[in-house]
Design a protein around this nucleic acid. Structure first.
Length: 567
RNA sequence: UGAGGUGUAGCCAAGCGGUAAGGCAUCGGUCUUUGGCACCGAUAUCCCAGGUUCGAAUCCUGGCACCUCAGCCA
């Protein structure tokens, strides 16, 4: 296993860390802290899981404890090996190390079965022959108590016999269950004789066909925690109602009893976060896969260019509490920009090129100008960029009739080409349709390096590329997956998918790139100056570079325009 | 109409009886060879109503709002 350290993120206290601190003070667990991250391998991890991972592994690291990675693989019909592999990869990529503590709930099936037999012998569990429909009927409703199953009072001998035969495979799927004998009138539905085992003649990714009965979450989870001597079993809010049952099983068995603590799951604006919905997007090909850069999955964010560090910082910044919350996606974007600003090499790229001819520059001359790789990191050094008579600049850096607060290039106006010269626009050449296709400019040789000896100033500095030297590549621009902050914000009878953003992916197939980008490898991250952060996609090859836009730079000009539009 | 939770700024979130941290966003400004970064400044009386107290976001009482639960999913 790679040696990755977990504890390099900003952390502050929260109610869970407060509980642990107190437990340490009172020596509740003999000075131990043991947490676990228990994903079900039925999908890819998303940013919400990252929050849980950072919490569980983070807490363990801070308090000198351990955090287990445990696959909660109790339902073979939904689980796949592909998911197990992706989950391990994602947790590792996020920077966490479970050491030797990799576990599978399925490894405990034998022990769980013995404990179930124990409860049967104690008269605390029984085999029930009710059909699924009948079970629902007998359960009662939120406001009315349930009714006891007619099979509730079978003898211990009969229950033992039936349960043994359930396990032996004598009965078809769904024909019987093993249920805990608790209280059909409990106001907490979870306590109304919950099902412990169901019959499922299905092959399990790990145990093969060794079992045909599989434990339910409520029965299994506490046992897994108990077996692993977990101290703090941290889960999300929807399990709060299950805690009495978690406690009941462990007490009934008289075994080691961890404390379950619930916190609010993460929601983000402009995206969906349930595994069911993410699966739907993948299956219906509304995105290009689990790792589509528009997905809030860990693999999607990775492909998009997010750094593990930025995700960890984000998780630290949003905190941990019990109030339902939807975090503004701008906070996530802030985290990547903050990290990438420090580490990303700067480079020039022109996404939507417009030709610029420097009329007074020699035809066959090429200069190699020095450019800084990262102003935030002097150690990153410098590089050379070629300059020549014909250049490309960004279409949006030129406006023929500019509004008053636009200070880039316009007819008769002078701007600075980054690391090069001042140029002035003299003529605008258009095609038959009136589209600007070329700018005729002149440069001032005295301004090499960006300063004019006469002290005159220019308002703008723009990026550029030498047409003859630039390489061509594909750039994929991403926007939010949904047009609404809350995808569930739909008209009567509408579907969340109707809020999918048709413009969430824009492919620019012939963007121009600085020649120094040749040879960039998938995963490499750059700042395209004045545009944003980009990373090389795995679809990239030596013949054709493909970049993903991770996030734009903050863009004051865009905001000014937006404000102007609203007026 | 049952049970369990939660309500502090546009969004997260500290606060634990002594007079509302911090981050994101937003708006001003400084700086600038990235309209980036950095820096400076602005922005809340804490769901509501009573009560206790010298003093309440914090304690008490009563409301209100929102979330979760009726899978042989987790």
């Amino acid at each position: 296993m790679e040696n990755i350290s977990a504890a390099n993120s900003r952390t502050s206290s929260d109610f869970i860390r407060d509980i642990i601190t107190k437990d340490l003070k009172t020596d509740k667990w003999g000075g131990r802290v043991a947490t676990r991250f228990p994903p079900e391998p039925n999908g890819y991890l998303h940013i919400g899981h990252a929050k849980s991972i950072c919490l569980n592994f983070g807490v363990a690291a801070e308090f000198n404890g351990v955090c287990h990675l445990r696959f909660d693989d109790t339902n073979p019909v939904k689980e796949e090996t592909e998911y197990i592999e992706s989950i391990e990869e994602d947790v590792r990529w996020l920077g966490f190390d479970w050491g030797r503590h990799l576990y599978f709930a399925s490894d405990y099936f034998g022990q769980m079965y013995e404990w179930a037999v124990q409860l049967v012998k104690d008269g605390k569990a029984y085999v029930c022959d009710l059909t699924p429909d009948e079970i629902r009927e007998y359960r009662g409703t939120l406001t009315e108590p349930g009714k006891e199953s007619p099979y509730r009072n079978r003898s211990i001998e009969e229950n033992l016999d039936l349960f043994t035969r359930m396990r032996a495979g004598e009965f078809p799927d769904g024909s019987r269950t093993l249920r805990a004998k608790i209280d059909m009138t409990s106001p907490n539905l979870n306590m109304r004789d919950p099902i412990m085992y169901r019959i499922l003649h299905a092959a399990h990714p790990h145990t093969g066909d060794m079992w045909c009965i599989y434990p339910m979450y409520d029965w299994a989870h506490g046992l897994e925690d108990s077996i692993e001597k977990i101290t703090h079993s941290i889960c999300t809010l929807e399990f709060e109602d299950h805690r009495p049952l978690y406690d009941w099983f462990l007490d009934a068995l008289g075994v080691y009893h961890p404390q379950q603590i619930e916190f609010a799951r993460l929601n983000l604006t402009y995206t969906v976060m349930s595994k069911r919905r993410l699966l739907e997007l993948v299956r219906e090909k509304l995105v290009r896969g689990w790792d589509d850069p528009r997905m809030p999955t860990v693999s999607g964010l990775r492909r998009r260019g997010y750094t593990p560090e930025s995700i960890r910082n984000f998780c630290a910044a949003i905190g941990v509490a019990k109030a339902d919350s939807t975090v503004d996606v701008s906070m996530l974007e802030h985290s990547v920009r903050e990290d990438l600003n420090k580490i990303a090499r700067r480079v020039m790229a022109v996404l939507r090129p417009i030709r610029v001819v420097i009329e007074n520059y020699p035809e066959d001359k090429t200069e190699e100008l020095e450019a800084v790789n990262n102003p935030e990191d002097p150690g990153a050094g410098t590089r050379k960029v070629p300059f020549s008579k014909v250049l490309y600049i960004e279409q949006e850096d030129f406006i023929e009739n500019p509004p008053k607060d636009f200070f880039r290039l316009a007819p008769g106006r002078e701007v600075r080409l980054r690391y090069a010269y001042f140029i002035k626009c003299n003529d605008v050449i258009k095609d038959d349709n009136g589209n600007v296709i070329e700018l005729r400019c002149t440069y001032d040789p005295e301004t090499l390096g960006g300063k004019a000896p006469d002290g005159r100033k220019v308002k703008a500095t723009i990026h550029w590329l030498s047409a003859a030297h630039a390489i061509e590549g594909e750039v994929r621009l991403y926007d939010y997956l949904f047009t609404k902050e809350n995808p569930d914000d739909v008209v009567e009878g509408g579907d969340w998918k109707s809020n999918l953003n048709p413009g969430s992916l824009e492919v620019l197939s012939s963007a121009r790139l600085e020649p120094s980008l040749a040879g960039a490898k998938p995963g490499d991250r750059f700042q395209f100056e004045r545009l944003g952060y980009f990373c090389v996609d795995k679809d990239s090859s030596d013949e054709k570079l493909v970049f993903n836009r991770t996030v734009t730079l903050r863009d004051t000009w865009a905001r000014i325009q937006k404000a102007a539009c609203k007026k």
